[in-house]
Design a protein around this nucleic acid. Structure first.
Length: 588
RNA sequence: GCCCCCGUAGCUCAGGGGAUAGAGCGUUCGCCUCCUAAGCGAAGGGCCGCAGGUUCGAAUCCUGCCGGGGGCACCA
């Protein structure tokens, strides 16, 4: 037992790591084995422990001993009294750990005084180039851009939180065949190209151009020539293009602002910015025999990819008409990110449909020696946004839903919910509606496994119960309310946390797991792991709130402790939601 | 034809080698003279798509099927 030993002081990071180290040490001392993994996991429900080690079973097999005997050997050699109050062996050889109450209390106090709330900085900080959002110039942003933008932004925040340097790259679609169509069409209908065009005009123009392109061969030919003019830098064409670009970027920034996403014009590095190097890219691949003419086009064949006919599958580096494709642009982009930006990691947050394309690009860029083996290339995929009918989300007319409309509706719907909150001023209500509405949309996107398609449902995402942003925001608002009532500023860690009641203990344990949740989200590039954690924390708080009086508690020491637990919960909720890009109003 | 993703409670989703598979919604039943009831508690609900295999142990890993989605030569 632990009574004689002082508890281990506050430690940053995943608390399971501490137990893992102790178990490895014990296994080394008692059995003379090096445990690669102590297999520490949160305890199964109802087993009375906080954490368990599952290492004895496999180790027993390896050593030819009964798992329970191995477990006993490890436990007898274990030196963990400063962390645990009880260590038992259960079942075939599970080692169960109960953490010391006073250590948990010290963890929470320490966290509260720590600006990082326990989240450790990476021992090997990396430079991460992260591709996200990627809207198209002259098209309004639609739901198709939602996920890349939201998930990408959350990943930027998460990676930075653990100490990585992140360079966001907004690879906007501002070049290529569609612009030939669009520019040629604009030229047809409005030869005085100095006229200003709003983004929704452009959206309409775009659709008209598309229709004309498909129906009118003469127009299609002119459009192709217009692409060549654009790529060749013909002044009038370029001037008109620039207008489109600037109007579009104003629109993008307005959407990012509304969404609360940190992207700025400095992060924009569109397809057009690689235009000048495309000939060099093609020439280098051709000179080095990495690309050959096939069917009239210059093609590179990365190893291991075949098409329907079982033939090698190409990246089209230069079309038979001399133009370049997004294969070329993406090769140039990969080279730039690896060699100019000197990325350690290159992350692309792009829908799952592009998987084959990026696998080919990554493979070819490595074959060309542009991306070194030491640089990690990751395609962070995500599924489609579905309507409640289970089909791709569309408007009634069958068009893709404009992002601005969607977000405005979110704020409006949230506003209706907030309307009867009489204690809020009109201005506060507007701010709260925004935080709740936008938060709901973002959280709905972030809270389930990104690889899955998800069903967009207003009713569910704005629900007060369950794993939603509002529920978390509400929990946090309640805490602020309690703290106001208590006349206490948000505590910054007076070290007065005591862990006694079951609900206090459960809350403290949940708080102490925050760093592990962040690390898990970062390592797997899965924001939903943090969401799941935050929901568990909010649930633990709700239980604590129901069963433990806080501001009304008469025992001063207990009251101070509970206020500090509440403050810590608020701090973690706010930090956690901030890492997801979600606002946390103090009043709802 | 080949490749990628998905299949867990009626619905929406967690869990991705460990003990008795968890939430929320919906259903049923409780809880506001008490810090925000936008809340909390309880009950009921499961051949974890199917079949093999690996393992002391499989919802989890492997193989093959079935079902859904996506991709596979000059659009991006």
């Amino acid at each position: 037992m632990s009574a004689e030993t002082a508890p281990l002081a506050y430690v940053r990071g995943d608390i399971a790591e501490i137990l893992a180290q102790r178990v490895r040490d014990a296994a080394h001392r008692s059995l003379n084995v090096e445990l690669a993994d102590a297999l520490i996991r949160p305890s199964s429900a109802g087993r009375g422990g906080d954490y368990q080690s599952n290492a004895a079973m496999s180790l027993g097999k390896k050593l030819g001993q009964a798992p329970r005997v191995v477990a006993e050997a490890i436990v007898s050699a274990l030196r963990a009294d400063d962390v645990t109050s009880e260590v038992t062996i259960g079942g075939p050889g599970f080692i169960n750990f109960v953490l010391r109450d006073d250590w948990l209390a010290a963890q929470v106090s320490g966290q509260l005084a720590d600006t990082q709330l326990g989240v450790p900085q990476s021992a090997h900080p990396k430079r991460v180039v992260l591709d996200l959002s990627g809207p198209n110039v002259s098209k309004e942003m639609h739901v198709g851009h939602l996920r890349s933008t939201i998930i990408g932004d959350a990943l930027v925040r998460l990676l930075r939180a653990v100490g990585h340097e992140v360079i966001p790259q907004n690879h906007v679609g501002d070049w290529g065949t569609p612009f030939g169509m669009l520019l040629e069409h604009l030229h047809d209908v409005d030869s005085a190209s100095g006229a200003k065009h709003s983004i929704s005009d452009l959206n309409t123009f775009y659709q008209q151009a598309r229709t004309k392109f498909d129906a009118d061969e003469d127009f299609a030919e002119r459009a192709r020539r217009r692409v060549v003019a654009l790529q060749g830098g013909e002044p009038d064409t370029l001037a008109l293009w620039k207008e489109l670009f600037e109007e579009s970027e104003r629109h993008f920034m307005a959407v990012y602002e509304l969404l609360g996403v940190g992207l700025t014009p400095q992060d924009t590095k569109g397809e057009s910015s690689y235009n000048d190097v495309l000939p060099e890219i093609a020439a280098e691949l051709e000179d080095r025999k990495l690309a050959v003419i096939s069917g009239g086009a210059l093609c590179a064949f990365p190893k291991g990819f075949t098409n329907k006919e079982g033939e090698p599958m190409p990246l089209i580096i230069r079309k038979s008409d001399g133009g370049y494709t997004y294969d070329t642009t993406d090769m140039a982009t990969a080279k730039y990110r690896a060699q100019v930006l000197k990325a350690d990691d290159m992350i692309y947050v792009v829908d799952a449909g592009q998987n084959l394309h990026f696998e080919m690009i990554f493979t070819m860029a490595r074959e060309a020696g542009w991306v070194p083996d030491s640089t990690r290339t990751v395609h962070v995929t995500f599924g489609v946004v579905l309507g409640e009918d289970g089909k791709r989300l569309r408007t009634r007319a069958g068009d893709s839903v404009k992002l601005v409309d969607l977000l405005e509706e979110a704020v409006e719907r949230a506003g209706e919910v907030v309307a009867d909150r009489s204690e809020l001023s009109p201005q506060e209500r507007a701010e709260v509606a925004r935080a709740v509405g936008i938060g709901a949309v973002k959280y709905a996107d972030l809270s389930s496994d990104r690889d899955k398609d998800y069903i967009f449902s207003w009713k569910r995402m704005l629900a007060m119960d369950g794993n939603t942003a509002v529920y978390l925001q509400y929990a946090n608002a309640r805490i602020h309310s309690v703290l106001r009532k208590a006349g206490s500023a948000v505590s910054t860690g007076g070290g007065s946390v005591m862990v006694d009641a079951p609900a206090e203990r459960a809350l403290a344990l949940s708080l102490a797991r925050f760093p592990a949740a962040v690390l898990s989200a970062v390592e797997n590039l899965q924001p939903h792991r943090l969401c799941t954690y935050l929901y568990e924390l909010a649930t633990a708080f709700s239980h604590f709130y129901e069963t433990c009086p806080i501001a009304n508690e008469t025992n001063e020491k207990v009251r101070a402790s509970r206020l500090e637990l509440s403050s810590a919960t608020s701090a973690v909720l706010e930090k956690g939601l901030d890492l997801l890009g979600i606002a946390t109003p103090h009043r709802l």
